[in-house]
């Protein structure tokens, strides 16, 4: 038996599908790397629509607001971005990870 079997999560892709069906513009954020005590595993996803509604999570609430801000920019210009968060960053403490972990989050639009 493999040692890691992913569990359930919010139905992020299902929600994205529904939002797209309603004509909303959507960005999808995915945790692609973690170091240290990051709260959510690689593969965790957060979807954001053009009104700033979001579903899913990429941290324990530490960086979601920053991801939502980045998503609105990415929805506008259509270019994917790799976001980088960690306690060591010079960013304001409210968008750092208080747990001391580091994460990289890939954000893309869903066409």
């Amino acid at each position: 038996m493999a040692d890691i079997i992913p569990g359930a999560d919010d139905d992020v892709l299902g929600t994205v599908h529904r939002w797209k069906g309603e004509g909303r513009k959507v960005a999808l954020a995915t945790v692609v790397t973690t170091w240290g005590s990051s709260p959510r595993p690689v593969g965790s996803q957060l979807a954001v629509d053009d009104k700033g509604n979001f579903v899913g999570s990429v941290s324990a609430g530490c960086v979601e607001s920053a991801v939502v801000d980045a998503a609105s920019r990415i929805i506008k210009n259509g270019k994917p971005e790799l976001l980088d968060f960690g306690i060591a960053d010079d960013q304001a403490w409210e968008v750092g990870l208080s747990c001391g972990g580091k994460i990289e989050i890939f954000v893309e639009t869903v066409d």
Binding site: A2, D3, I4, I5, P6, V32, T33, V42, G43, E104
Partner: peptide, 8 residues
Amino acid sequence: LAREESRL
């Protein structure tokens, strides 16, 4: 896929 483990 075999390990069911996402990775970069």
